[in-house]
Design a binder for these strands. Structure first.
Length: 510
DNA sequence: TCTGACACGTA
DNA sequence: ATACGTGTCAG
């Protein structure tokens, strides 16, 4: 195993990709010059025609060719390149929830040695899947298509007990970010039998989580392209010196950015010889579409996440921040804002609020938002709201409901055997329960949810080109165990964003 | 491997 | 000016 192939490559992907990618490119294609390719296409009940284009794909590809690394820290670290997409094909009047999750790309643990990544063992149990709901959600198609949708505020952490709602990852493991577009119903809810959603995967966004950069090439790419790292950029001369130095020659002047690692002149370390990891430079293809059921189906054992039981494992966070998301301005009328964590850390992160949580089981009907939810801070603070996070062993979009966040235990059986070592199996998530909202949410959570799966309609698409093993013909997602078809965990998640009078008015900034 | 103080940069 | 996003570096 191992590296033999391409560590970076994603194991079987659902490749049903079909649609030809590079065809219709929207004008707005955010990514500059390159192949436009509509990286994705959704097809299904109301989701057909939706296309998603990865912004700055060329930049992603540069990183991908080298083997993208994303730093994970206890406090949470943003991703760079930032995950931004251009979405087209949405019904201007319909409301959608856009969210992301990051799933294991495979079952391996990696190491970086000899200037290349290689498999060094079996992956740790997957962290509970957390969903990062774009702070503008829910919003109209018009809103989402008007401008780039940025997930720049999303943060990655290696803290399994992270209280901020950041996405939890294991260091030295490879991951695949995914974007989900969920259609909300007229009440801004979703999760009903007819809820439609589609999933978009850009293979060039796969990365290995690290606590410190391993490949110096990646460090340099980050420094060269991330504005916040400008301080580490050196002059050309310095760069020359730096390079020379790392190559073994000594020079008097060395930029700060200089380093601890040697540059590897050839090829991408990632995948060792697997230069062509198969993953890169391709435009995304679309076409993957699975039925609702596919998504609902629990991932194969290997991929499964812990606990079947759990409410305790589900978490939904909502982040209310003081500032509007840079790229995603939102409504200004917030009425509420409060930290949900007692011991909240001082930064604004403290405004993340887990909306739902483990709680006692509840009544089945989730849809009418539980009292109180309507007033929840969620909606309010729209302008400040940063994002919502969902967490669970395996989030399931199909269970999301957008009027309030909540989850319930699924009918679905546990996805898989829980791993004893999984921290989440035992982590109580107590911190969150302090929030009233949480209580309410939780109250909704856990109820048995209808087998949404069956009726849930959605479509999935994947931008990646089919590479490697096309052996799995159909339900791509399911076959890939480390790559669940949907963020679906064993629980039932419901998202409720405050609704007033039935239909919240998410203002759409211009 | 991982952590946290640090300088330096953006916004 | 403040807040906070960066990689560095020593431990």
């Amino acid at each position: 195993m191992a590296n033999g192939g391409d560590p970076f490559a994603i194991p079987e992907r659902m490749d049903t990709d079909t649609d030809s990618p590079k065809e219709n490119k929207p004008e707005n294609h955010t990514s500059s010059s390159s192949p436009p390719s509509p990286e994705t296409t959704c097809t299904q009940q109301g989701m057909e025609g939706i296309k998603v284009y990865l912004h700055e794909r060329e930049l992603w590809e540069k990183f991908h060719e080298v083997g993208t690394e994303m730093i994970i820290t206890k406090a949470g670290r943003r991703m760079f390149p930032c995950y931004k997409v251009k979405v087209t094909g949405l019904n201007p009047k319909a409301k959608y929830i856009l969210l992301m999750d990051i799933v294991p790309a495979d079952d391996h643990r990696y190491k970086f040695a000899d200037n290349k990544w290689s498999v060094t063992g079996k992956a740790e149990p997957a962290m509970p899947g957390r969903l990062y709901v774009h702070p503008d959600s829910p919003a109209t198609g018009s809103h989402w298509t008007r401008q780039l949708v940025s997930f720049q505020k999303l943060k990655l952490t290696n803290n399994h007990l992270d209280p901020f709602g950041h996405i939890i990852l294991n260091s030295m493991h490879k991951y695949q970010p995914r974007l989900h577009i969920v259609k909300a119903d007229e009440y801004n809810r979703f999760g009903s039998k007819n809820t439609a959603f589609c999933t978009h995967v850009f293979s060039e966004t796969t990365f290995i989580a690290v606590t410190s950069y391993q490949n110096h090439k990646i460090t340099q790419l980050k420094i060269e392209n991330n504005p916040f790292a400008k301080g580490f950029r050196g002059s050309d001369d310095m760069e020359l010196h730096r390079v020379a130095k790392i190559q073994g020659k000594e020079y008097p002047v060395v930029p700060r950015s200089s380093v601890r690692q040697r540059v590897c002149p050839s090829g991408s370390p990632f995948g060792g010889e697997a230069r062509g990891l198969g993953l890169h430079p391709y435009s995304c293809e679309n076409g993957l579409r699975s039925t609702t059921q596919d998504l609902l189906i629990p991932p194969p054992a290997p991929y499964t996440l812990p606990q079947p039981d759990t409410h305790e494992h589900m978490q939904v966070y909502h982040c209310n921040k003081r500032k509007a998301d840079d790229s995603c301005p939102t409504a200004e009328n917030h009425q509420y804002r409060k930290p949900y964590i007692d011991s909240s850390p001082s930064n604004d992160e403290s405004y993340y609020q887990p909306s739902a949580y483990p709680q006692p089981p509840l009544p089945p009907s989730v849809h009418p938002p539980p009292p109180g939810l309507s007033d929840s801070p969620y909606r309010s603070e729209a302008g400040q709201r940063q994002a919502c996070m969902f967490a669970g062993s395996e989030p399931r979009l199909d269970n999301l409901c957008c009027t309030s966040w909540s989850y319930s235990c699924p009918l679905t059986p546990p996805m898989a055997p829980m791993t004893p070592t999984d921290p989440y199996t035992t982590f109580p998530h107590q911190p969150y329960s302090s929030s009233p909202r949480n209580a309410q949410l939780s109250s909704i959570a856990h109820q048995g949810s209808p087998p949404l799966g069956d009726s849930l309609s959605h479509s999935q698409t994947q931008s990646t080109r089919p590479h490697q093993t096309p052996q799995h013909p159909s339900p791509p997602l399911r076959e890939y165990h480390r790559y669940p078809s949907s963020p679906s965990p064993p629980h039932y998640h419901t998202l409720h964003t405050h609704v007033r009078g039935g239909v919240p008015e998410w203002s759409e900034p211009t």
